[in-house]
Design a protein around this nucleic acid. Sequence first.
DNA 1: TCCAGAAACTTGAACGATCCAATCCTGCCT
DNA 2: AGGCAGGATTGGATCGTTCAAGTTTCTGGA
Lengths: 329, 329
Amino acid sequence: MAEKVTIATVARHARVSRQTVSNVLNAPHIVRQETRQRVEDAIHALGYRANQAARQMRTGRSRLIAARIDPTRDGINGSVLDRFLHGLTETADAAGYRVLLYTATDDDREIATYGDLLGTYELDAFVLVGTKHGDPRTEWLADRNVPFVTFGRPWDALDAHPWVDVDGAAGTAGATRHLLDAGHRRIAFIGWPVGSGVGDDRRSGWRDALHAAGVDPTGLHRETEDGIAEGERLMRDLLVAATPTAVVCASDSLALGALQAIRGVDPPVSVIGFDDTPVAAAVGLTSVSQPLGEAAARCVDLLTGVLDGDHETPTPVLLQPSLALRHTA
Amino acid sequence: MAEKVTIATVARHARVSRQTVSNVLNAPHIVRQETRQRVEDAIHALGYRANQAARQMRTGRSRLIAARIDPTRDGINGSVLDRFLHGLTETADAAGYRVLLYTATDDDREIATYGDLLGTYELDAFVLVGTKHGDPRTEWLADRNVPFVTFGRPWDALDAHPWVDVDGAAGTAGATRHLLDAGHRRIAFIGWPVGSGVGDDRRSGWRDALHAAGVDPTGLHRETEDGIAEGERLMRDLLVAATPTAVVCASDSLALGALQAIRGVDPPVSVIGFDDTPVAAAVGLTSVSQPLGEAAARCVDLLTGVLDGDHETPTPVLLQPSLALRHTA
DNA sequence: TCCAGAAACTTGAACGATCCAATCCTGCCT
DNA sequence: AGGCAGGATTGGATCGTTCAAGTTTCTGGA
């Protein structure tokens, strides 16, 4: 078993004091070039790595970021989180942070977990995926001055915390324009019940795009909980009640249901989903694609900004989605 | 800003020494009942939480487990990892451990990351998902006596490390028997190239089930890299060359391709996939389902066994998959 | 009543880093 | 040569916990 390499070992090896080694690591500019080189050589030769626990004890910073991993809900949109987490881990790593996972079944438990993570692990920050109206979690964190970013804008606009989001309205608007350009006029929308921030946002893009083109959207939209079966049901309803020639959906799940409903219908009805999930790619569904890797990267940017003592409130980031064209539209 | 609550605060409050508080936390049985109660009350009243960094410094244990999060490869099988990670986080949490994520693009970098994580964060253990013949990662970890578990058995059988796996052969055998029971005799198999442990395992289940039923599998199998397009290509080939009435696939990706190849074929060809991914559920594909939550739980069990000083090599765990019946078979 | 031995509890040291304040150089000016 | 400013370097204290080695209190048997 090799001797443990500490900052003192490096100091002895480089014939300097512990503090100088520490300075080389944390404030290289105040160390003379020659000394710095000698210390860096020693660090390299000995394979020294700063012990995070000891550092944390002095500084109170853990260089750890927490993110929640959900049970895959409907199984389709789960992969969005998957891709986001991957991007988060990668970017955080590059910035010198690590990602810690946690789970929670409801808001109360999640908040209890915050307390635990902050108390025992001294987490530096949280990344929350998804926010809702009157989210108690953001309030709790903000009250305690815990740094955090949300992937998903704050729908209440009460408190301004750093956030990154993808412009859902722009996504559905783009999808709708794509259909308009293809000559469609009766373009329907299947979305989520009014009151969900994300759902309302996505619906507004569709509506605005139609208005801008001088098309009346009346009677062409339906709302429901997310799910394949629901998508199928509402699409069947739309087919008889409104005879659309195309439909934009708030999720790939709904779009997949719609696809099943239009099987065999002639002329074929165009379908566009949202999220560009693996399922969409698999079945050839055109879908609005979110730049998840970039979203994760911007989350880390915002956090490091806050953590590294940037006192001004960082500017929120709104990213533009793109349309992944496949054969359903 | 409230005063920081340390073990000393609790000690003062309960009129005992620091060490006694520590004992209540780590070795309750050596503290008198009455004293213990007093300390526990103080802990509760003050909202004390043990500082992990300080504890780690003394004990060298971080109560952190590392798991790798991959970029979603083909986009379909990614959700397997997703579900596994969720289970891992949940079970680890219950056992008092937290899950730390890392990424790596190749084996060398991954091993470098091990060094980094061990050196700076003093990780307690690693969970590796997927193993291959001559895996350099398991060798590296084993050489350094780093505790780890693999989800996926060691295919070389050289070194015995703790592992959890799902019996792939049993899965494909079950799928094959299901088809045999339905009256099929010409049951094909589309799998991965010979040499991949997982692929060979899954193929053997199909072959053995056919043999057991007295059916000759000659000419009924094909091998390729994973992917929807490949599945479709090989299925077309099988249709003309071997006229199967059913096919078992090594993955949902391949099965999805096969589904596309048989569209319109009459009488319909039955298809069974592997992994029970969201895509399978979405398109109604019958698929072999792995108990991922349980697999994750058993991984944690094995690890805590090793970490909590259980010196005997733990018994590997082989879990049985089930068949998620849908309308393709 | 006394004492040995066990049980319960306490004190000082240590883990490995950073912070703080003091000291040592070094070059420059007089 | 001496003084001085300023940067470079150093030693001691400290973070919150557990370990090791005491010290006190309790228990029961002679």
